[in-house]
Computed example of a mutant assay.
Amino acid sequence: MIDISRTLNADTPTWPEDEPFSYDLTASKAETGSVNIGQFTTSCHTATHIDAPFHFNDSGLTVDQLPIDLYMGPVLIIDLTTKQRITPEDLNFINLSDVRRVILKTDAWPNGDPFPTEIPELDSRLGAFFHEHGIELVGVDLPSVDPLDSKSLDTHHAFEENDIHILEGVALDGVEAGHYYLSALPLKLEGADGSPVRAVLQSI
């Protein structure tokens, strides 16, 4: 089992102006006589998380409306660590037969590093390309599938238009390209635009 989740703590990098992660022990065992009770606050898009279409489309599906089988099953990790821009042409040599989920490894945001100032760009044409090849979930080791300063979010929208869902912020340090079994289930958050996940790979 390989944990590809980023740790949530006070030092977890977050989107600028986003709600940072915090955990507080609001009642101790000494106070309650039986248990410790904590609470946490965070943005839905901190560390390793999924985007629901509602994140960028007011009429898009929310987290609780997404089919959970998207986030469990065989996945192909593709090594694209030399690319500053990822296009369909970069993937023409990959055999995507019988592949439903892919994770693109860029190594552009190593686990533990501060929030990046720039990341590789994913060409919006990848939406149609992945749809043509039967891909339904695309993961990245980046905070976003679009440039960090994008307001139009072209790749997010291209993915939604092609029924492709998004997993962001996975930690792939030391993980080799190849086939694995993925589990990255979101919390069942009613009406939410995203959710943290505990993303785990298993060798197959």
Rank of each mutant, 00 (worst) to 15 (best):
T14N: 09
R101F: 01
P120W: 05
N111D: 04
T62Y: 12
I68C: 10
W109D: 02
S97Q: 08
G38T: 05
P116F: 05
D64Y: 09
E168Q: 08
H133F: 12
A199I: 04
V175E: 00
T26I: 13
I103T: 01
D154L: 15
N92A: 14
D11Y: 15
L189R: 12
T32S: 04
D149N: 13
G194Y: 04
D11P: 13
D193F: 13
I94T: 04
S97N: 07
A128K: 13
E190K: 15
D163L: 10
D154K: 15
G33T: 04
L201E: 01
H49R: 09
E168Y: 14
G169A: 00
A177Q: 04
I50N: 08
M72Y: 15
A10G: 04
P13S: 03
D149P: 01
Q202G: 03
D123H: 07
A52C: 02
P116N: 06
D149Q: 13
E190Y: 11
Q202S: 02
Y181T: 12
I103Q: 00
D154C: 12
L66H: 10
Q65M: 14
N9L: 14
L104C: 00
L153F: 09
I86C: 11
F21A: 01
T82I: 13
E121H: 13
I204K: 11
G73R: 15
V197M: 01
E168H: 10
F40P: 03
D149G: 02
T14V: 07
